[in-house]
């Protein structure tokens, strides 16, 4: 029974190799002393040093973080409002159409979203003189429009799961609907809101297509910078930058995993406690 099928193990190894060998080779070559990306010239950390002193990279990183932070936060607020409305508004004329309109951007090709955002900004500039130039504001607005859809989808799913009676109970105990929202609804769905924010943040941080349509002179985000640098050939400092990003993301995943494991262990302990105190 303990002999696992050879075929399955092979497939598993291939899968992992396919996925991780490129990343591993990138990490290895980020420590390459040679200028040539594909020729090993000994171990060195000089690309990391040069990265830290590269103003262009630091500025691009700061801009990306700023856009991701602002767009994720606004998208979370708007997306949460949409999600709650869709889940709680009950039946109304055109509800199906409305739900469809909200989820359509999920499957819309990014190029289309990018182009339509660009055309919209150009038209707006013609009509009301705003936005005068494209950059931080236009990128952020474009990111909000497509990432809020993810938030609203997550929130809506969580709302449909939640026990409606909890909100009714709060209302029954004297709270007006807006108080119920802040006292009960939002705290109950807060994990969904948090994961929506994280998703919106990640999507914004690594977006190339929509950003490239809505950016302007002087506003280069990190993915755009990497993209434009790679067009001139892969250099070891890009490897170093990418390695740092992998490290950051990896650490994020590990920390999230530990936190979730702890929460699970605590929940189990709580359940044991409840069982013991059963009367």
């Amino acid at each position: 029974m303990n002999r696992r099928p050879v075929f399955l193990i092979t497939v598993l190894c291939f899968g992992f190799a396919f996925f991780y060998i490129p990343i591993l080779s990138m990490i290895v070559y980020s420590f390459n002393a040679s200028r040539l990306a594909t020729v090993w010239g000994g171990f060195s950390t000089k690309w990391y040093v040069s990265l830290m002193s590269n103003r262009q990279v630091i500025e691009a990183l700061m801009l990306s973080l700023k856009i991701a932070l602002v767009s994720a936060t606004i998208a979370t607020i708007l997306g949460t409002m949409t999600g709650i409305t869709l889940a709680r508004f009950g039946k109304f004329r055109g509800r199906m159409l409305f739900t469809g309109l909200v989820t359509a951007p999920l499957i819309m090709p990014e190029v289309i979203t990018g182009i339509s955002s660009l055309i919209f900004f150009i038209l707006m500039a013609d009509w009301i003189g705003w936005p005068g130039s494209r950059g931080f504001t236009t990128i952020t607005l474009a990111h909000i429009t497509f990432s809020m859809v993810f938030v609203s989808t997550i929130v809506q799913a969580r709302m449909l799961q939640a026990d409606r009676a909890i909100e009714e109970a709060a209302m029954d105990l004297g709270s007006r609907p807006w108080q119920v929202l802040f006292d009960v609804t939002l705290p109950v769905i807060s994990p969904a809101i948090l994961s929506g924010w994280l998703l919106a943040f990640t999507i914004s941080l690594d977006d190339v297509v929509i950003t490239s349509f809505t950016t302007g002179p002087g506003a280069t985000t990190l993915p755009l910078l990497i993209w434009s640098k790679v067009k001139l050939g892969v250099t070891p400092d890009i490897n170093a930058l990418a390695t740092l990003m992998v490290l950051t993301v990896g650490m994020g995943v590990v920390v999230a995993g530990i936190v979730m494991n702890r929460a699970e262990a605590r929940r189990r302990a709580d359940e044991r406690m409840a069982y013991r105190s059963n009367d």
Partner: peptide, 20 residues
């Protein structure tokens, strides 16, 4: 008269306790 203004309270079948 809306629920929040009624001197009537309800014990729900699911108890509807606030989990947080």
């Amino acid at each position: 008269v809306p629920p929040w203004n009624r001197p009537v309270h309800m014990m729900f079948q699911s108890y509807a306790l606030f989990p947080h």
